[in-house]
Design a protein around this nucleic acid. Structure first.
Length: 853
RNA sequence: CGGCGCGUGGUGGAAUUGGUAUACACAACAGACUUAAAAUCUGUCCCGCUUUGCGGUUGCGAGUUCGAGUCUCGCCGCGCCGACCA
């Protein structure tokens, strides 16, 4: 008996699928469409285990849906712009484009060897001019609709690399590459007006019921809607007014100061004639953005000398501070401080000896002796010391203050969001050029659609820090499309999140001459099932949701939610190993008989650490390439599906992959040992079969029902468990009597169909061996025979006072009375009851009988 | 500090959504086959006891219920995310 040879078999079927265009999608109006998509990879060089996991999950769904009769769209492409290509250019002198395309080549080959059912004719790469020209065309339209604009914003500036850094690239106040101290700088940046849709992005989350609750909550928190009041404070000694946003207007009588952000316009104005204030503001701006520094940062203020008039009394004057904890980017950039009822304000007030006036009386004991001193009371209570508000609840007081201030035009109810507009400018080379020119005469002029794409130049130099586009001898010099005078190109490129905000649309019409083909959009979009990592739960998904709304406004699409269903899968983890020299790869260590770890090369002891997400920096990675070579794609796929549910992290283990390998071999052995019988005969199941034969048939059909349900709900680990049980039943089946061959044949054919989406190569090979000539990939999913699903008898639990005492077999249609009678007649139960009195008997049909004493 | 999630054997995890806790595997141990190994097959495998049985067990403690891994409250522990959002 030959062992299953994955290398040979897998290649055979991959060639077959490709040659016969099994997975090339085209719309057939007779069928319902199903678009399944996994997040496309960044072409970093080689695929990693995370890719294997997410693409396996998507492939199971795609193959399953195809067998259920859907017109499936399952494409793949490349998120191909981004920093690593530039780093390769800097470090190894390889042009970014060349590096990227060669990585794509390698990874495409690797993905193909995994046997994924992609329609490769629709492949796209975001770095291809065919792709980014369309992105540029869409940008021009967003610009025309004021959904894109240029604005001065504060950014993290790395003075050594001469580039803007994202928050996550600033580590402890220093640039992640250069190590230079990061400055806050005001730079002119391109922005997308995502805030225009803040409310809709929030409201629509309610309709995304096929998304995980956690992702919806994260998005809602990110958008961060708060309702409050804008209050205008007149100044006693200045002509300006200060507009303040608050969610606690009820505490207005407790106000003891006003604080404005260091970069508030009024602060800048005052600092012009006040060097001390200017230097205070500069200190604030230098403050790093890292968590640690913010955590430690003391609340600091600078008294401007201005006095604000309390809107109610008009008499009371509140000092106006510039304070480092007030953010210009939220609300109005100014607050009123009510120390008694806000933790930040009480810290500030304690430092600067400002009054602390209680206006909300707690119902219980406050201050709570258990709490540290200087703790603000933020709970519920009734208003005191607050004039006309006294005695009201917080909510009543909020409404009363809003009403009164609105009546006198000193305030207005206002909703504000934590969400900021999306800054899309990057001072980088390897990205989509932003298609505008800067003309001295005409200002910012979009590049006309006929002149697109604005191509990235190939001949760029990385010998200096900063953006090579900016230094290119010729590229940025051009003429104004408007006046034909000399003009300069925009040298910023797009954030790569822009590229990934619409790629899923382009798959539907990869070669269309305009951004999107309306017909294709109608046929395929939105994505029915999106699969990807939880790390993109906020930004990528939110940006895509915004982009669809923007495209809808431009008339390209008619929907606004891009992803109907979302499956967020967990990470692939592995133990970490290290010794004095640093981290070690799993293949560099081995386990001793005592269970300790040591180095393979010199036997020195090695520390093993906890299991963490696979990452190159900790070297706890396993290369899919070597796994593929040793075990083949099907085994790797099975490992990813068994044991753990998709949304949870999985631990990569040697024994786990061995277990998957053994199962693949076991299934193959069953197929090998089986002599195919006459096809016609197998269809007829005789009526005089033995109970064992009927049992196998029932098991087969129950497995179909269970596995179908499990796949529909993405519980692949359960599906695998069910398939393993059926496999064990077939292996153990020794009957030869009437109907035995037919039953075994039916079980085997079913098994092959059920493993089809998970182990497609093995399944095809077995299908062929069972005597079928057509590809399994084109077969339909089995339907259970419902007459075999129900059983005449069921095992019921009999409890006494909720404690299991025995089990009894009963007919499924037995009446409750009869079931109760039989249970009470059972000798075990009788013995337990003894001569105690029965208070009550609860009968749950086909489940349990509980005798209450 | 806040938000969200999780806690079931040595391990990954099941549990018909309030109804027989530990399915399916991994590891371990014992046995069969073998000159031997690998592979394969069979058996044991939550804990305790006075072992045909009895008692206990889903992080800990309470509650609701005829019945709780599942619902409620309070602790403890772990993980992820956010971070001065007025």
């Amino acid at each position: 008996m030959a062992r299953y040879n994955p290398a040979k078999t897998e290649q055979k079927w991959q060639e077959y699928w490709s040659k016969n265009e099994i997975f090339v999608s085209s719309r057939d109006d007779g069928k319902e469409k199903y678009y399944v998509l996994e997040m496309f990879p960044y072409p970093s060089g080689r695929i990693h285990m995370g890719h294997v996991r997410v693409y396996t999950l998507g492939d199971v769904i795609a193959r399953y849906k195809k067998s259920k009769g859907f017109d499936v769209l399952h494409p793949m492409g490349w998120d191909a712009f981004g920093m690593p290509a530039e780093n390769a250019a800097v470090e190894h002198g390889i042009p970014a484009a060349e590096w990227t395309w060669s990585n794509i080549e390698t990874m495409r080959h690797q993905l193909k060897s995994m046997g994924f059912s992609y329609d490769w004719t629709r492949e796209i790469a975001t770095c291809s001019p065919d792709y980014y020209r369309q992105e540029q065309a869409m940008f021009v339209e967003l610009l025309a609709r004021d959904l894109a604009y240029k604005k001065e914003t504060w950014v993290n500036w790395d003075p050594v690399d001469e580039t803007v850094l994202a928050n996550e690239q600033v580590i402890d106040g220093r640039g992640w590459r250069s190590g230079a101290l990061i400055e806050r700088r005001l730079l002119s940046q391109w922005m997308f007006r995502i805030t225009a849709y803040a409310q809709d992005l929030l409201d629509s989350l309610d309709n995304l019921d096929e998304w995980p609750e956690s992702v919806r909550t994260m998005q809602a928190n990110w958008i961060g809607r708060s309702e409050g009041l804008k209050i205008e404070f007149d100044l006693a000694n200045h002509s300006e007014t200060i507009s303040v946003f608050t969610t606690r207007p009820d505490t207005l009588y407790g106000a003891s100061f006003i604080a404005i952000a260091p970069n508030h316009p009024l602060a800048s104005q005052l600092a012009e004639n006040n060097p001390t204030m200017l230097s205070f503001i500069e200190t604030c701006n230098r403050l790093g953005t890292s968590e640690v520094e913010l955590e430690k940062a003391e609340k600091l203020g600078f008294d401007t000398g201005l006095k604000a008039k309390h809107p109610f009394s008009g008499q009371e004057e509140l000092p106006v501070f510039v304070a480092n904890f007030v953010l210009m980017s939220y609300g109005t950039g100014a607050i009123f401080g009510c120390p008694a009822h806000d933790q930040r304000d009480i810290e500030f007030a304690s430092k600067y000896k400002l009054p602390i006036k209680t206006v909300v009386a707690p119902s219980g004991d406050f201050p709570d002796p258990a709490l540290p001193p200087h703790t603000a009371f933020t709970g519920d209570g009734l208003m005191i010391n607050s004039g006309f508000l006294d005695g009201m609840t917080i909510d009543q007081a909020k409404a009363a203050v809003a009403e009164k201030l609105e009546a006198t035009n000193q305030g207005k109810r206002h909703v504000t969001y934590r969400l900021r507009d999306w800054g899309v400018s990057r001072q980088r080379y390897w990205g989509c050029p932003i298609p505008v020119v800067h003309c001295d005469q005409c200002g910012i002029v979009p590049v006309p659609k006929g002149s697109l794409p604005v191509l990235l130049p190939d001949d760029v130099a990385f010998d200096q820090p900063g953006n090579p586009l900016d230094r290119h001898p010729t590229w940025k010099h051009t003429t104004c499309p408007n006046c034909s005078g000399a003009a300069e190109r925009e040298t910023d490129t797009f954030d790569t999140f822009v590229d990934s905000s619409w790629y899923f649309c382009r798959y539907a019409c990869p070669e269309f001459s305009m951004p999107l083909d309306p017909e294709a959009m109608k046929s395929w979009l939105p994505v029915d099932q999106y699969v990807g990592g939880i790390e993109h739960a906020i930004l990528h998904l939110l940006y895509s949701r915004f982009f669809m709304r923007a495209l809808k406004e431009c008339g390209y699409v008619s929907f606004k939610e891009p992803f109907t269903g979302l499956l967020a899968q967990g990470m692939v983890c592995h133990e970490t190993y290290r010794d004095d020299s640093g981290w070690l790869y799993p293949e560099e260590v081995e386990q001793t008989e005592a269970g300790n770890w040591q180095r393979r090369d010199n036997g020195q002891p090695v520390q093993s650490g906890r299991s963490e997400s696979m990452s190159k920096s900790k070297k706890n990675v396993v290369d899919p390439g070597s796994i593929l070579k040793t075990y083949g794609a099907d085994t790797a796929r099975l490992f990813m599906l068994s044991d753990s549910p998709p949304e949870r992290d999985i631990e990569w283990t040697e024994s786990g992959i061995e277990g998957a390998w053994k199962f693949v071999q076991k299934v193959w052995r069953i197929a090998e040992s089986y002599e195919p019988i006459e096809r016609q005969a197998s269809k007829q199941h005789p009526k005089d079969s033995s109970p064992q034969v009927i049992q196998l048939r029932k098991h087969t059909h129950q497995t179909i029902a269970a596995v179908t349900k499990d796949i529909e709900s993405f519980r692949f680990n359960r599906a695998v468990a069910g398939i393993r049980q059926l496999t064990n039943a077939i292996a153990a089946f020794q009957e030869n009597g009437s109907g035995a061959q037919q039953a075994k044949c039916e079980a085997l054919e079913t098994l092959v169909k059920l493993i089809g989406p998970m182990l497609p190569h093995l399944a095809e090979e077995m299908w062929e061996r069972l005597g079928f000539s057509a590809s399994l990939a084109q077969e339909s999913w089995p339907l259970p025979d419902t007459s075999l699903l129900s059983s005449q008898t069921v095992t019921m639990a009999v409890q006494i006072n909720g404690k299991l005492r025995t089990t009894l077999n009963m007919a499924t249609d037995i009446t409750s009375d009869l079931a109760q009678e039989r249970a009470l007649a059972d000798p075990v139960i009788k013995a337990h009851i003894g001569n105690r009195e029965i208070k009550k008997v609860v009968v749950v049909p086909n489940r349990v009988i509980n005798v209450v004493l």
